[in-house]
């Protein structure tokens, strides 16, 4: 075997959910319900899309293309691998639980 052909193509998706899994209702449930608590609630609700915006900007610099569906933003690239994408996001200060990665391989040609 002398050849070093790669036998697959790939698409890496970074999936960014725009809203938190669970809104921070505990702020209102645990403490006094006043203006400060509601503003704190609003601040925390808004924090998630701000983080997503940062990741969108970071991934755009790596030439990821963006699409939107339901409450998710999907960044995809046929150049950057999944591990590289994850490493990059972690280096940018984001954490594992803030994104999901889906890597799809397909055959490069009609092999069995």
């Amino acid at each position: 075997m002398k050849s070093n052909n790669l036998m697959v193509n790939h698409v890496t998706y970074v999936i960014l959910k725009l809203t938190a899994e669970q809104p921070p209702y505990h702020i209102l449930a645990d403490g006094p319900v006043d203006q400060a608590a509601v503003l704190e609630f609003a601040e925390q609700v808004a924090a998630r899309p701000r983080r997503v915006a940062g990741m969108v900007a970071a991934l755009s610099r790596q030439n990821f293309a963006m699409t939107f569906s339901k409450d998710h933003i999907y960044a995809h690239s046929t150049e950057i691998g999944a591990q590289a994408a994850k490493k990059y996001l972690l280096e940018q200060g984001y954490q594992d639980h803030e994104f999901e990665i889906f890597l799809e391989y397909t055959r490069s040609w009609g092999i069995m």
Partner: peptide, 13 residues
């Protein structure tokens, strides 16, 4: 929520 098929399969697929 599941990945929409059109998005899962990307721009090429």
């Amino acid at each position: 929520t599941g990945i929409p098929n059109a998005v899962t399969t990307g721009t090429r697929f």
